[in-house]
Design a protein around this nucleic acid. Sequence first.
DNA 1: AGCCTTGAAATTACATGCAATCCTTCGTAA
DNA 2: TTACGAAGGATTGCATGTAATTTCAAGGCT
Lengths: 230, 230
Amino acid sequence: MTTETSAREQGLAERAYLTLRKAILEHELAPGTRLSVPNVAERLGVSRSPAREAIARIAYEGLAHFEPHKGAVVADLDAESLLEIYEVREALEGLACRLASQRMGADDVAGLRELVAEHTAAVEAGDVELHYDLDMRFHARVRELAGNTRLTAQLELLQHQIRLAMYTTHRSPGGMPLAVTEHRRIVDALESGDPVLAEAAGRSHVSRLLRDLSADDDRRRAVLDRRPAS
Amino acid sequence: MTTETSAREQGLAERAYLTLRKAILEHELAPGTRLSVPNVAERLGVSRSPAREAIARIAYEGLAHFEPHKGAVVADLDAESLLEIYEVREALEGLACRLASQRMGADDVAGLRELVAEHTAAVEAGDVELHYDLDMRFHARVRELAGNTRLTAQLELLQHQIRLAMYTTHRSPGGMPLAVTEHRRIVDALESGDPVLAEAAGRSHVSRLLRDLSADDDRRRAVLDRRPAS
DNA sequence: AGCCTTGAAATTACATGCAATCCTTCGTAA
DNA sequence: TTACGAAGGATTGCATGTAATTTCAAGGCT
């Protein structure tokens, strides 16, 4: 037993990073918020060194960016950035499915089916929170099965960026059941063992998400255009 | 005019990072070399703060990794890591070609053709250095034309990692003319404006590079197997 | 009333002190 | 000769001092 007040044997910088990231992803620190080193340090109860390191890492991961002479600011991703992110994600999610289809076993398929079943139930019950959770878990499981650590890391980064950008906005109502259907189709493709089919399934799922996003945007813009005076 | 000894108005940490990266990519600091903070600081003539930051960034970018209680070590990528990297690169390079094919104009095609022409000449002249240079420039140009900043950043990271891993090893002799042929095919596909074709061309180029790599490995292994006592 | 100037507060970036921890090496004993 | 142990050296991680620079705001001037 070593001395351990409440630290899980990880550095202060690491914990500061995790805390900060959580706060950002949950919009406790909304996009646009300035992350000054002394401020973050005090907030997290650490000195400036680990605070600075945590902020740097947040920025490296695309959750904040540095503005000259102003320090880091929580990222406020515009539509074009989101498009970029989805373009990359489509390719990588497709790759994940392709790899998974080649490396996965029967029990893995069963595990995914179970997840989809839970998901179906959650959606039928209208449980939005659980829907998001299961959606994330599904994708996490697929990339895990792909067995490519770099790919996994990238997809997780993109996931975080998307979560940050869409915390409140962009929730198309019909999306929940559609997601489940598409996930089921992905599992079918994975089970078939056909890498081309699997990749196509993964990609079309992501590209559909993007299309819905754009559609939402258009709808929103149309509404705003009707009342030009805000 | 501000006071400016020789710094180009960028921080010490930034310059330390660039210097360090260059040293690593040129194998001045070979894979396996330990990057201790005091050591790097002294080497670059800066204090420990910017040195530490530079090392952290190098590690974030996959050019080094932290070993517990030993600090950062220049990455020594094994075959499996390279495979992972190439898997991701194949997908992203395909995406780059797809996007470029949709966004590029006639003059852009002309620019690429010029590059390929230069490249052809270099290969015919047997200029290996120039070959590498033009190869890199070709890919850089394509991702630039794709117009997706995240994609560009990712591909550059992968490029660096690959360069580090293959500094001396892995140079298949027939690769040079093949690369030119494939680049030409990519330009043809890009010019056609068919995104599917373009993506396929980009992907198959990368996957061929990977196949050659594996073939080289096998050959090398075979040679070693013949003389089990090293 | 609006613009400019000046001052104050805050921030970054860098340097450096310091304790805890770990690896390494050298000496010693079996 | 080999295994063990202890001391030394080095490194990390964190804390904090400090100068330069910039932003922000208030007040005065036109």
